[in-house]
């Protein structure tokens, strides 16, 4: 965060912008876009053990017009491609995309030479902000992905990264 020099708008309010970013980061409303197996881990993250509500993101909106972040959880197909692109275009700015799971990153286990139907990664269709590897990634990994997105938005991390050992 901070490598780009592009200002977010013509008129800059320094402290107000960082306050707005803090608000946006702490209340990311995801769109329910669970396609396949990763959707179940996303639901587990919304459950009470790996509570996503502590990060302000438990309000899964069915409509793209009311959501901030699209968590692409699952495999994208050639048949579904147009629908996904439409949903991404319908989300209002500022919007972010989290690619959850190996299928959304690169096609995952379906990126083989016989592949005739799977789009190899969500980033072939629209820009992705955070990639979460795993098949499926654990709920803790999804939470780490949300914290990485928050860091991307505000420039600061909610709490320090844990290093093993």
């Amino acid at each position: 965060m901070g490598e780009e020099n592009v200002p977010s708008s013509i008129v800059q309010f320094a402290q107000l912008d960082s306050l707005l970013n803090l608000g946006r980061a702490n209340s990311l409303w995801p769109m329910t876009f669970g396609l396949a197996c990763c959707a179940i881990e996303m639901m587990c993250t919304g459950g009470s053990r790996y509570d996503i509500s502590r990060f302000g993101a438990e309000v899964f909106r069915p409509s793209p017009r009311q959501s901030d972040v699209m968590i692409v959880a699952g495999t994208i197909n050639k048949k579904l491609e147009l629908a996904v692109k439409t949903l991404y275009d319908q989300m209002p700015e500022p919007k972010w995309v989290i690619a959850m799971g190996n299928c959304a990153i690169s096609g995952g286990p379906f990126k083989v030479k016989e592949n005739y139907n799977v789009v190899e990664g969500a980033d072939k269709l629209f820009p992705v902000d955070v990639y979460i590897p795993g098949c499926p990634p654990r709920p803790e990994a999804l939470l780490e992905g949300i914290m990485t997105l928050e860091e991307k938005i505000t420039g600061k991390r909610r709490w320090p990264r844990v290093h093993p050992g």
Binding site: L35, A36, L80, V112, K113, Y116, N117
Partner: peptide
């Protein structure tokens, strides 16, 4: 919309 070619992958 989520056809992932399992039968073709089995043959491969």
């Amino acid at each position: 919309y989520i056809h992932r070619m399992h039968e073709k992958l089995a043959e491969g």
